[in-house]
Design a protein around this nucleic acid. Structure first.
Lengths: 204, 204
DNA sequence: GATCTTATTAGACAGTTGCCTTATAACCGG
DNA sequence: CCGGTTATAAGGCAACTGTCTAATAAGATC
C-alpha cells in the first residue's frame, strides 16, 4: 500500500485548456457530489491540479460555478439549434430533431442534469443566475416557436404560446423523470412521449 | 451596537413539537440558503435552539434532511388526495382539483419547491432518498390513473400510461417553471395550462 | 543556452462545520 | 416543596473550507 502519490506538478497548459478543465470538473463534481461536496478544493482535486490554481483562473469558487452555468446553457442551446437547422423546413421533423437533441446521450446525461438541477436552485436566490436562466428560456422558446409557427394552422388548436409553454414543461419534466430513474424512463421513451405530446398539442 | 442577544434558553418543548420545529426549519433553510447553507448548525439557529439539540432528536444533520423529505412527500400526497376525494365521481373535476391542490399557495411555494429541488438532487446518489422518491411517484401516479380510468374511453386516445406520464411531466415542469419565475407563470396560469394539457391528452 | 514570463504549487490563516461530552435548568411526580 | 428526568446549552476537537502570499519551475523569447 505504498500509495505515496507523488504530487507531480501538472503539465503546464494553455489558459483556455485549463479553464475548460476546471469548468468540466465542476459539472462532474456537482453531479457526483452534489452542491455540498462541490467545493473549490474538491473541483481542483477532480481536475488534477492544486487548489491554488482556481484563484488563478476564477475570482472565487462561486464565480467558477456561475461561468459553468453560462457555458452549459450556451452549449446546450448551440447543440439543439445545430441539430434542428438541417430539417428546418419540415416542422414535424424539426420538432423531432429537437427532442432527439435534448435527449441525446451527451446532453441528457445524469451528470449534466444533476448539475442542471443544482443551477435551478441557484436561480431563486441569485440575480446573476436568474439572468442567465431567463436568457436561456427566452432563446429556447424562441426556437420552439419558430418551428411551431410553420405548422399548418388548424382551427381549434391551442394558442401557440400555451402549447409551447406546455411542451417546455414536458421537456423539463421528462428530464427530471429520466434523471430520477433512467431505467424507468430511458431516452427513447422520453423522445416518444415528446413526439406524442407534440402531436396532441399542435393538432386540432 | 449593543446587539448582545442574550442567549435565552428556549422554552422546554415536547419532543414532537421540537422535532417538527427542526423539520420545518430545514425546509426554510434549504429554500433560503440552498443546500450549501443548510448546515446542522444553521438549521438550529433558524429554529432558535442550540446546535447541540439536533443530535438529541436526530442521528445527524443528514438524517434530519432525510426525514424532512419523507415528511414533505407524505404531506403533499395527503393534501392532494384529500382535495380530490370529494369530487372523485367526476373525473374532469377530480383532475382540476388535483391541479389546484398541487398549485395551491401552501404547496407550490418557493420555499417548498426550493427544498423539493434539493431533494431531487439527492435521489441520484442516495439509495434511501431514491426509495422515498419511488414510493412518492408510485402513489402519485396511482392516484392519477385512478382518476383517468373513469374518463370515457375514446377511440384514438393515447394509452393511459403514456398520457399519465406526459401529464406528470407537465406537473413537474410547471412546478419548476413557477419556481424559476413566479411572475412569468403564476399559479392560475399553471392550473389553466394543466387543464388544457389534460383535455388534449385524454380526448381523442 | 540565458532570461523572463507566468502557470502551478504549497503553506499559513481565520472561520465554519459535524461530532461528542459535560454541564445546566425546566418541568413532572411525589 | 423537593428530587429526578430529560430537554437544552455550550465547550472542545479534528477536519475542512476559502482567501491570501510566497515560492517554484515549465516553457517561450531572444
Amino acid at each position: 500500500m505504498t500509495d505515496v502519490t507523488i504530487r507531480r506538478r501538472a503539465r503546464r497548459e494553455s489558459p483556455l485548456v485549463r479553464r475548460k478543465d476546471l469548468l468540466d470538473a465542476t459539472v462532474t463534481c456537482l453531479a457526483r457530489l452534489g452542491p455540498r461536496g462541490t467545493t473549490g478544493r474538491e473541483i481542483c482535486r477532480q481536475a488534477g491540479v492544486s487548489h491554488g490554481l482556481l484563484r488563478h483562473y476564477f475570482r472565487n469558487p462561486d464565480n467558477l460555478l456561475f461561468e459553468t452555468y453560462e457555458q452549459l446553457c450556451d452549449d446546450l442551446l448551440a447543440h439543439v439549434e445545430l441539430a434542428v437547422a438541417p430539417v428546418a423546413d419540415d416542422p414535424w421533423a424539426a420538432l423531432h430533431a429537437f427532442f432527439v437533441a435534448v435527449f441525446s446521450d451527451d446532453w441528457a446525461s445524469p451528470d449534466i442534469i444533476g448539475a442542471w438541477i443544482v443551477f435551478w436552485q441557484q436561480v431563486r436566490s441569485r440575480d446573476d443566475f436568474a439572468a442567465v436562466s431567463d436568457a436561456f428560456n427566452l432563446r429556447q422558446r424562441a426556437l420552439l416557436e419558430r418551428i411551431v409557427h410553420r405548422l399548418p394552422q388548424q382551427a381549434g388548436a391551442l394558442p401557440i404560446a400555451d402549447a409551447v409553454a406546455i411542451l417546455s414543461a414536458v421537456l423539463d419534466g421528462l428530464w427530471i423523470e429520466f434523471y430520477l430513474s433512467d431505467r424507468r424512463t430511458p431516452h427513447d421513451r422520453c423522445i416518444a412521449l415528446c413526439d406524442q405530446a407534440a402531436r396532441r398539442l399542435f393538432t386540432a
